[in-house]
Amino acid sequence: MSYAYATQDEKTISGAMALVMHLLFLLLLVFGVSWQHKQSDSAVIVDLWNNLPALPQPKAEPPPPEAKAPPEPPKPVPKAEPKPKPEPKPVIKPDIALKEKLEKERKLKVEQEKLEEKKREQEKARVALKEKRAKEVEAKQLAKEQDDALRKINEMQAAQAAARGKQIDEYRRRISEKVKRFIVLPPNLQGNPEVEFDVVLLPGGEVLGVKLRKSSAVTAYDNAVERAILKAQPLPLPPDPALFNDFRELKLKFRPKE
């Protein structure tokens, strides 16, 4: 009726705006605040390599064989040329006798043939050497690649083993924590004696058997811990059944104060 009271329109608008305000607030809460706990892979095991033997090298090596190969051919060429030079010398000397000349010519021919043979041999050797080197380089690269792959696999295995180890440690800790909660300490316990138990577990976390391995010298405390172990079942086990083997036979140590 009166102006001072809000109209229906205003009421709807106000209601809608209030709703929008709260939706905004909710969105801000859910998406704006990253509620920490990225946590993910907490600890990462890192191998420190003081002088990486191969990782930087494989990149630097491939070019050298190519760079080395071109300068090589010129070497044998100058070597091969100086040898034919002796040829002209005998040609100037003859003129003493035809026989001698003929003989010399023959000798020369033979010599030339020999020289040529030598040349060929040298060439062959050179080619062989080249091939050998190329093969060596290839073999080296191959070996390096294999090495790399091996190392990568090793690293991966190490990481997996580390993760497994971490999980095992985590669940070991949980198990002893859970047991500790059930320990009812005997009165007037003196000192901080350590007791050790051998526990045999079933895959569900049930305790199959408990055996005192090392007494704490306080029987009451030993009994309390044994009772606690039995009471604490099922003990927490990792969800991965593959890890159970590490939990089948557990050695648990307890101290009254820790």
Binding site: K11, S14, M17
Partner: peptide, 21 residues
Amino acid sequence: LLASMFSWYYIFLKIFMLKRA
């Protein structure tokens, strides 16, 4: 949440009312 909803509702309503007054 209810209190907040209503207070925001009244806040907007009041803004309209006082502006008009």
